[in-house]
Protein backbone atom coordinates (compact mmCIF):
# COMPACT_ATOMS: atom_id res chain seq x y z
CA UNK A 1 0.00 0.00 0.00
CA UNK A 2 2.84 2.30 0.91
CA UNK A 3 4.40 1.91 -2.51
CA UNK A 4 1.11 2.57 -4.17
CA UNK A 5 0.72 5.80 -2.28
CA UNK A 6 4.15 7.11 -3.02
CA UNK A 7 3.68 6.43 -6.70
CA UNK A 8 0.30 8.16 -6.82
CA UNK A 9 1.76 11.14 -5.01
CA UNK A 10 4.62 11.43 -7.50
CA UNK A 11 2.23 11.21 -10.42
CA UNK A 12 -0.34 13.58 -8.97
CA UNK A 13 2.27 16.17 -8.05
CA UNK A 14 3.80 15.83 -11.49
CA UNK A 15 0.46 16.25 -13.20
CA UNK A 16 -0.51 19.19 -11.01
CA UNK A 17 2.78 20.92 -11.81
CA UNK A 18 2.31 20.40 -15.53
CA UNK A 19 -1.27 21.65 -15.43
CA UNK A 20 -0.36 24.69 -13.38
CA UNK A 21 2.74 25.57 -15.37
CA UNK A 22 1.27 28.25 -17.68
CA UNK A 23 -0.50 30.35 -14.98
CA UNK A 24 2.48 30.07 -12.61
CA UNK A 25 5.08 31.02 -15.20
CA UNK A 26 2.93 33.83 -16.53
CA UNK A 27 2.54 35.16 -12.99
CA UNK A 28 6.31 34.98 -12.57
CA UNK A 29 6.75 36.72 -15.93
CA UNK A 30 8.66 33.70 -17.17
CA UNK A 31 6.24 32.76 -19.92
CA UNK A 32 9.17 31.50 -21.96
CA UNK A 33 9.03 28.26 -20.00
CA UNK A 34 5.68 27.45 -21.57
CA UNK A 35 7.24 27.05 -25.01
CA UNK A 36 10.17 25.11 -23.52
CA UNK A 37 7.76 22.75 -21.80
CA UNK A 38 5.65 22.35 -24.94
CA UNK A 39 8.77 21.02 -26.58
CA UNK A 40 9.44 18.77 -23.60
CA UNK A 41 5.87 17.39 -23.65
CA UNK A 42 6.21 16.60 -27.35
CA UNK A 43 9.48 14.74 -26.82
CA UNK A 44 7.84 12.98 -23.88
CA UNK A 45 5.16 11.77 -26.28
CA UNK A 46 7.82 10.43 -28.63
CA UNK A 47 9.62 8.80 -25.72
CA UNK A 48 6.45 7.14 -24.40
CA UNK A 49 5.76 5.74 -27.86
CA UNK A 50 9.29 4.37 -28.07
CA UNK A 51 8.99 2.85 -24.62
CA UNK A 52 5.92 0.95 -25.73
CA UNK A 53 8.04 -1.13 -28.11
CA UNK A 54 11.30 -0.90 -26.20
CA UNK A 55 10.24 -1.38 -22.62
CA UNK A 56 7.26 -3.65 -23.10
CA UNK A 57 7.90 -5.62 -26.26
CA UNK A 58 11.70 -5.70 -26.16
CA UNK A 59 12.15 -4.10 -29.58
CA UNK A 60 15.04 -1.68 -29.33
CA UNK A 61 14.56 0.67 -32.25
CA UNK A 62 17.30 3.17 -33.02
CA UNK A 63 15.25 4.53 -35.88
CA UNK A 64 12.37 6.08 -34.02
CA UNK A 65 13.36 9.49 -35.32
CA UNK A 66 12.22 8.31 -38.76
CA UNK A 67 8.59 8.43 -37.66
CA UNK A 68 9.09 11.72 -35.88
CA UNK A 69 10.45 13.10 -39.14
CA UNK A 70 7.78 11.55 -41.35
CA UNK A 71 5.04 12.98 -39.12
CA UNK A 72 6.68 16.40 -39.19
CA UNK A 73 7.11 16.32 -42.97
CA UNK A 74 3.45 15.33 -43.44
CA UNK A 75 2.45 18.55 -41.68
CA UNK A 76 5.22 20.51 -43.37
CA UNK A 77 4.43 19.37 -46.90
CA UNK A 78 0.70 20.00 -46.53
CA UNK A 79 1.40 23.49 -45.20
CA UNK A 80 4.04 24.12 -47.88
CA UNK A 81 1.48 23.65 -50.65
CA UNK A 82 -0.97 25.95 -48.94
CA UNK A 83 1.69 28.68 -48.87
CA UNK A 84 2.84 28.05 -52.44
CA UNK A 85 -0.72 27.53 -53.66
CA UNK A 86 0.30 24.50 -55.67
CA UNK A 87 -1.03 20.97 -55.90
CA UNK A 88 0.78 18.12 -54.19
CA UNK A 89 2.65 16.46 -57.08
CA UNK A 90 2.70 12.90 -55.79
CA UNK A 91 -0.99 12.70 -54.88
CA UNK A 92 -3.86 12.45 -57.37
CA UNK A 93 -6.67 14.96 -57.44
CA UNK A 94 -4.64 18.17 -57.31
CA UNK A 95 -5.02 18.60 -53.55
CA UNK A 96 -3.37 21.84 -52.49
CA UNK A 97 -2.57 20.86 -48.91
CA UNK A 98 -4.09 21.93 -45.65
CA UNK A 99 -3.30 23.70 -42.43
CA UNK A 100 -6.29 22.27 -40.60
CA UNK A 101 -4.93 20.46 -37.56
CA UNK A 102 -7.34 17.54 -37.82
CA UNK A 103 -6.39 16.88 -41.42
CA UNK A 104 -2.67 17.51 -41.22
CA UNK A 105 -2.06 15.84 -37.86
CA UNK A 106 -4.32 13.00 -38.95
CA UNK A 107 -2.26 12.62 -42.12
CA UNK A 108 0.89 12.61 -40.02
CA UNK A 109 -0.45 9.71 -37.97
CA UNK A 110 -1.62 7.77 -41.03
CA UNK A 111 1.59 8.29 -43.01
CA UNK A 112 3.87 7.44 -40.12
CA UNK A 113 1.81 4.32 -39.40
CA UNK A 114 2.24 3.23 -43.00
CA UNK A 115 5.99 3.79 -42.79
CA UNK A 116 6.06 1.89 -39.51
CA UNK A 117 4.14 -0.96 -41.13
CA UNK A 118 6.64 -1.33 -43.95
CA UNK A 119 9.77 -0.75 -41.87
CA UNK A 120 8.46 -2.94 -39.07
CA UNK A 121 7.45 -5.77 -41.40
CA UNK A 122 10.98 -5.93 -42.76
CA UNK A 123 12.87 -5.20 -39.54
CA UNK A 124 11.01 -7.71 -37.41
CA UNK A 125 12.64 -10.52 -39.32
CA UNK A 126 15.62 -9.74 -37.13
CA UNK A 127 15.96 -9.32 -33.39
CA UNK A 128 18.26 -7.92 -30.73
CA UNK A 129 21.21 -5.91 -31.95
CA UNK A 130 20.37 -6.63 -35.56
CA UNK A 131 17.00 -5.02 -34.97
CA UNK A 132 18.68 -1.92 -33.54
CA UNK A 133 20.83 -1.66 -36.64
CA UNK A 134 18.21 -2.36 -39.28
CA UNK A 135 15.87 0.28 -37.82
CA UNK A 136 18.82 2.66 -37.81
CA UNK A 137 19.46 1.81 -41.45
CA UNK A 138 15.92 2.70 -42.47
CA UNK A 139 16.02 5.96 -40.56
CA UNK A 140 19.33 6.90 -42.20
CA UNK A 141 17.90 6.12 -45.64
CA UNK A 142 15.01 8.50 -44.96
CA UNK A 143 17.44 11.08 -43.58
CA UNK A 144 19.52 11.10 -46.76
CA UNK A 145 16.39 11.02 -48.87
CA UNK A 146 15.03 14.18 -47.28
CA UNK A 147 18.43 15.90 -47.24
CA UNK A 148 18.57 15.65 -51.01
CA UNK A 149 14.87 16.32 -51.64
CA UNK A 150 15.21 19.87 -52.93
CA UNK A 151 11.49 20.29 -53.65
CA UNK A 152 10.89 20.49 -49.92
CA UNK A 153 14.00 22.39 -48.94
CA UNK A 154 16.42 19.48 -48.55
CA UNK A 155 18.64 20.11 -45.56
CA UNK A 156 17.18 23.61 -45.18
CA UNK A 157 13.81 22.08 -44.44
CA UNK A 158 10.46 23.85 -44.63
CA UNK A 159 9.53 26.93 -42.64
CA UNK A 160 5.88 27.02 -41.63
CA UNK A 161 4.19 30.40 -41.94
CA UNK A 162 1.87 29.56 -39.10
CA UNK A 163 0.80 26.77 -36.82
CA UNK A 164 -2.00 24.37 -37.75
CA UNK A 165 -5.50 25.58 -37.09
CA UNK A 166 -8.13 24.16 -34.78
CA UNK A 167 -11.51 25.93 -34.90
CA UNK A 168 -12.07 27.76 -31.64
CA UNK A 169 -8.47 27.55 -30.45
CA UNK A 170 -5.54 29.81 -31.11
CA UNK A 171 -2.51 27.55 -31.37
CA UNK A 172 -0.24 30.53 -31.91
CA UNK A 173 -0.86 31.27 -28.25
CA UNK A 174 1.85 29.37 -26.35
CA UNK A 175 -0.36 28.41 -23.43
CA UNK A 176 -3.14 26.99 -25.64
CA UNK A 177 -0.58 25.08 -27.66
CA UNK A 178 0.99 23.75 -24.49
CA UNK A 179 -2.34 22.45 -23.21
CA UNK A 180 -3.03 20.78 -26.54
CA UNK A 181 0.35 19.02 -26.35
CA UNK A 182 -0.24 18.02 -22.76
CA UNK A 183 -3.71 16.71 -23.55
CA UNK A 184 -2.45 14.66 -26.48
CA UNK A 185 0.38 13.29 -24.34
CA UNK A 186 -2.04 12.28 -21.59
CA UNK A 187 -4.40 10.72 -24.15
CA UNK A 188 -1.56 8.71 -25.64
CA UNK A 189 -0.36 7.69 -22.18
CA UNK A 190 -3.88 6.51 -21.42
CA UNK A 191 -4.00 4.47 -24.63
CA UNK A 192 -0.63 2.91 -23.81
CA UNK A 193 -1.79 2.15 -20.29
CA UNK A 194 -4.82 0.35 -21.65
CA UNK A 195 -2.77 -1.52 -24.22
CA UNK A 196 -0.13 -2.61 -21.75
CA UNK A 197 -2.69 -3.95 -19.33
CA UNK A 198 -4.83 -5.65 -21.96
CA UNK A 199 -4.52 -9.21 -23.18
CA UNK A 200 -2.60 -7.80 -26.15
CA UNK A 201 -0.17 -6.14 -23.76
CA UNK A 202 0.34 -9.36 -21.86
CA UNK A 203 1.25 -11.14 -25.08
CA UNK A 204 3.73 -8.38 -25.88
CA UNK A 205 5.36 -8.63 -22.51
CA UNK A 206 5.43 -12.37 -22.94
CA UNK A 207 7.31 -11.81 -26.19
CA UNK A 208 9.88 -9.71 -24.39
CA UNK A 209 10.53 -12.37 -21.79
CA UNK A 210 10.41 -15.45 -23.93
CA UNK A 211 9.30 -15.22 -27.49
CA UNK A 212 9.82 -18.90 -28.24
CA UNK A 213 7.46 -19.87 -25.47
CA UNK A 214 4.83 -17.44 -26.70
CA UNK A 215 5.07 -18.96 -30.13
CA UNK A 216 4.78 -22.41 -28.62
CA UNK A 217 1.60 -21.22 -26.94
CA UNK A 218 0.24 -20.55 -30.38
CA UNK A 219 0.59 -16.77 -30.61
CA UNK A 220 1.68 -15.25 -33.86
CA UNK A 221 4.29 -13.12 -32.16
CA UNK A 222 5.36 -11.48 -35.42
CA UNK A 223 1.90 -10.04 -35.95
CA UNK A 224 1.61 -8.84 -32.37
CA UNK A 225 4.97 -7.15 -32.48
CA UNK A 226 4.20 -5.55 -35.82
CA UNK A 227 0.94 -4.07 -34.54
CA UNK A 228 2.78 -2.73 -31.53
CA UNK A 229 5.47 -1.24 -33.76
CA UNK A 230 2.83 0.51 -35.87
CA UNK A 231 1.12 1.99 -32.81
CA UNK A 232 4.45 3.32 -31.60
CA UNK A 233 5.17 4.71 -35.07
CA UNK A 234 1.81 6.48 -35.05
CA UNK A 235 2.57 8.02 -31.65
CA UNK A 236 5.93 9.25 -32.87
CA UNK A 237 4.28 10.59 -36.02
CA UNK A 238 1.89 12.63 -33.91
CA UNK A 239 4.83 13.90 -31.89
CA UNK A 240 6.48 14.87 -35.18
CA UNK A 241 3.38 16.78 -36.25
CA UNK A 242 3.48 18.67 -32.95
CA UNK A 243 7.20 19.39 -33.09
CA UNK A 244 6.69 20.85 -36.57
CA UNK A 245 4.08 23.14 -35.08
CA UNK A 246 6.05 24.00 -31.98
CA UNK A 247 9.15 25.09 -33.88
CA UNK A 248 7.22 26.14 -37.00
CA UNK A 249 9.92 24.34 -38.90
CA UNK A 250 10.51 20.90 -40.42
CA UNK A 251 13.91 19.53 -41.34
CA UNK A 252 15.68 16.21 -41.86
CA UNK A 253 17.60 16.65 -38.60
CA UNK A 254 14.67 14.95 -36.86
CA UNK A 255 15.56 11.70 -38.62
CA UNK A 256 19.26 11.67 -37.89
CA UNK A 257 20.34 8.76 -35.76
CA UNK A 258 21.51 11.02 -32.95
CA UNK A 259 17.94 12.26 -32.56
CA UNK A 260 16.67 8.69 -32.29
CA UNK A 261 19.44 8.18 -29.74
CA UNK A 262 18.25 11.15 -27.70
CA UNK A 263 14.71 9.81 -27.55
CA UNK A 264 16.10 6.46 -26.49
CA UNK A 265 18.12 8.18 -23.76
CA UNK A 266 14.96 9.85 -22.46
CA UNK A 267 13.34 6.43 -22.15
CA UNK A 268 16.25 4.82 -20.34
CA UNK A 269 16.87 7.87 -18.16
CA UNK A 270 13.25 8.03 -17.09
CA UNK A 271 12.78 4.31 -16.62
CA UNK A 272 12.30 1.70 -19.29
CA UNK A 273 9.17 -0.42 -19.22
CA UNK A 274 7.16 2.15 -17.31
CA UNK A 275 4.44 4.21 -18.91
CA UNK A 276 5.19 7.43 -17.07
CA UNK A 277 8.96 7.11 -16.76
CA UNK A 278 9.82 8.43 -20.25
CA UNK A 279 8.00 11.67 -19.42
CA UNK A 280 10.35 12.19 -16.48
CA UNK A 281 13.24 11.25 -18.76
CA UNK A 282 12.27 13.86 -21.35
CA UNK A 283 11.88 16.56 -18.70
CA UNK A 284 15.24 15.67 -17.13
CA UNK A 285 17.28 15.46 -20.33
CA UNK A 286 15.96 18.61 -21.97
CA UNK A 287 16.11 20.66 -18.76
CA UNK A 288 19.62 19.40 -18.11
CA UNK A 289 20.68 20.52 -21.61
CA UNK A 290 19.13 23.92 -21.01
CA UNK A 291 20.71 24.42 -17.60
CA UNK A 292 24.16 23.06 -18.40
CA UNK A 293 24.40 24.99 -21.66
CA UNK A 294 23.77 28.16 -19.66
CA UNK A 295 26.75 27.28 -17.43
CA UNK A 296 29.38 26.52 -20.04
CA UNK A 297 29.83 25.82 -23.72
CA UNK A 298 31.54 22.61 -22.65
CA UNK A 299 28.28 21.32 -21.18
CA UNK A 300 28.63 17.97 -22.92
CA UNK A 301 31.59 17.11 -20.74
CA UNK A 302 29.21 17.20 -17.77
CA UNK A 303 26.20 15.62 -19.44
CA UNK A 304 28.24 12.63 -20.66
CA UNK A 305 29.37 11.45 -17.21
CA UNK A 306 25.89 12.15 -15.78
CA UNK A 307 24.45 9.68 -18.28
CA UNK A 308 27.05 7.05 -17.39
CA UNK A 309 26.39 7.67 -13.71
CA UNK A 310 22.66 7.16 -14.17
CA UNK A 311 23.23 3.89 -15.99
CA UNK A 312 25.63 2.59 -13.37
CA UNK A 313 23.93 3.68 -10.18
CA UNK A 314 20.32 4.59 -10.88
CA UNK A 315 19.33 1.52 -12.77
CA UNK A 316 15.60 1.93 -12.56
CA UNK A 317 15.74 5.41 -13.96
CA UNK A 318 14.40 8.60 -12.43
CA UNK A 319 10.87 7.31 -12.18
CA UNK A 320 11.94 4.18 -10.32
CA UNK A 321 14.02 6.36 -8.02
CA UNK A 322 11.15 8.74 -7.27
CA UNK A 323 8.53 6.06 -6.74
CA UNK A 324 10.86 3.80 -4.81
CA UNK A 325 10.02 0.68 -6.77
CA UNK A 326 10.62 -0.55 -10.27
CA UNK A 327 7.95 1.86 -11.28
CA UNK A 328 5.98 -0.84 -13.06
CA UNK A 329 2.73 0.57 -14.30
CA UNK A 330 0.57 -2.54 -14.27
Amino acid sequence: MDKFNRKSIVLLVGLALLLALPPITIAMEEAYFISLFSRIMIYALAAVSLDLILGYAGMASLGHGAFLGVGAYAVGILAFHVTEETAIPFLPGGWAGSINAVISWGSAIVVSSLFALVIGALSLRTSGVYFIMITLAFAQMLFFFFVSLTTYGGEDGINLDQRSQIPGLDLADDASFYYVCLALLLAFVYICYRIVNSRFGMVMRGCKQNETRMRALGYSTYRYKLICFVIAGAGAGLAGALIANQSEFVGPGLMHWTRSGEVMIMVILGGMGTIFGPIFGAVALLLMEEVLAAYTEHWMIILGPVLIFVVLFARRGIYGFLTGDGGRDG
Binding site: A31, S35, S247, G253, A293
Partner: peptide
Protein backbone atom coordinates in the same frame (compact mmCIF):
# COMPACT_ATOMS: atom_id res chain seq x y z
CA UNK B 1 25.65 34.14 -25.88
CA UNK B 2 24.10 30.71 -26.30
CA UNK B 3 25.30 27.53 -27.99
CA UNK B 4 22.99 25.95 -30.59
CA UNK B 5 25.15 22.80 -31.02
CA UNK B 6 24.29 23.19 -34.74
CA UNK B 7 20.76 21.88 -34.12
CA UNK B 8 17.74 23.70 -35.52
CA UNK B 9 15.55 22.73 -32.56
CA UNK B 10 18.02 24.18 -30.07
CA UNK B 11 18.47 27.37 -32.06
CA UNK B 12 14.70 27.92 -32.22
CA UNK B 13 14.39 27.29 -28.51
CA UNK B 14 17.16 29.75 -27.67
CA UNK B 15 15.67 32.39 -29.98
CA UNK B 16 12.39 32.01 -28.11
CA UNK B 17 14.14 32.40 -24.79
CA UNK B 18 16.07 35.47 -25.84
CA UNK B 19 13.01 37.14 -27.32
CA UNK B 20 10.54 36.29 -24.60
CA UNK B 21 12.59 36.22 -21.45
Amino acid sequence: ISDDARKVGNAKQIANRMLKR
